[in-house]
Nucleic acid binder design. Structure first.
Lengths: 187, 187
DNA sequence: CTCCGATTTTAACATATGTAAAAAGCTAAG
DNA sequence: CTTAGCTTTTTACATATGTTAAAATCGGAG
């Protein structure tokens, strides 16, 4: 499943709009370890992980922190840079050999102005992104790292076999040692 | 400043659209202690604090947690219920005698379909809301309660004289005792 | 298969933050 | 002015989580 299919589920587009949208989407095969975005670059694309795994990360106090994880069929973003046009302090790394689609955001904004139904799609997607961010805030504020780990495994079965522990730990806002304790059930 | 002025800064509207938008906004004077939204209600409005103070809060493990604070000239929301149409597990309380404006969301969606520029306004506002949520996530993940308190005082000078400490504490994700320690500078 | 490097787990310790409860400080009504 | 009730601060203690470092385990290259 690619961006077009994912967005059609949010807001069905006219044939003309869908065609125009398809023209600003690129697809690439990427190898483990490659980067979709480096620190300091302006992100001009909204990325989508068709098949594989990737992460958004940054440095904080000299530590590598995973901000976001995306597996098969998910958007790989949440990157402020794309909306603000400012250089990103986050980078995007591919964690497995993957298929990735990228939607050119400035072109998308042009299409928004041109087609009302694409503008609506944009509004709905931004709304969904906001709701997801709200849920994440609540999850951070009210659930322990142990609960969030359990939830992650539930939502993405087998994720801990695909993603190194250190990335899971920093994503969950804890340390590798604590996550190891959690897994051991010592609490 | 009301909703119309605040939104015109985000996306200037045609006269006709602005007029249509104005017709779905209500203004009310509310007293300290009153509620704009109760637990279990579906929130049909996007609220805006023209003058005064209010908070979004909920119960968690039997405790009253402030989720969001709004002072003069800010939106008073972030309430998922409005977007999903589901009953809210959050409530909205007025903390000082206030002037509040409320935009009827179902009507707003109707106007979005009718006027392309209102749809664009909706998209931009959702995008801003998402960016703000992202910033909040980073603030929670990477700054101590002490730093967040300092930042809050910086952003809203004098807020600690307007809002009871217990609300500030739960908003910052800490306890009244810890916040008291922070203020005393003991760390 | 064997070895080396990377990942994960375990251990020992330090520390920040929560809990509960008492003390101190404010504010408003009589 | 005095009291009552609420808010804020302080104290003492328990505990969860981070830090550092070492041990164990895993996985791929040769």
């Amino acid at each position: 499943m690619g961006i077009l299919e994912a967005t059609q589920a949010v807001e069905p587009l006219s044939l003309e709009s869908a065609k125009a949208l398809a023209q600003i989407i690129e697809r690439k095969s990427l190898k483990k370890g490659q980067h979709v975005l480096y620190f300091g670059e302006v992100d001009k694309y909204m990325h989508f992980m068709v098949q594989g795994a990737g992460r958004v990360y940054y440095e904080h106090d000299g530590k590598d922190i995973t901000d976001y994880l995306a597996l098969d069929g998910q958007f790989l973003g949440g990157v402020i840079s794309m909306f603000t046009g400012k250089p990103s302090h986050k980078a995007i790394e591919i964690l497995e050999d993957s298929e990735v689609e990228s939607l050119h955001y400035p072109s998308f904004e042009r299409l928004c102005a041109q087609y009302h139904d694409i503008e609506r799609l944009g509004r709905k997607m931004a709304t969904f992104a906001f709701l997801e961010a709200q849920e994440r805030i609540e999850s951070i504020r009210f659930h322990s790292a142990a609960e969030r780990y359990a939830f992650l495994e539930l939502k993405y079965p087998g994720i801990s076999n695909r993603i190194p522990l250190k990335h899971l730990a920093s994503y969950l806002g804890t340390t590798q040692v604590s996550l190891s304790r959690i897994r051991a059930g010592i609490q």
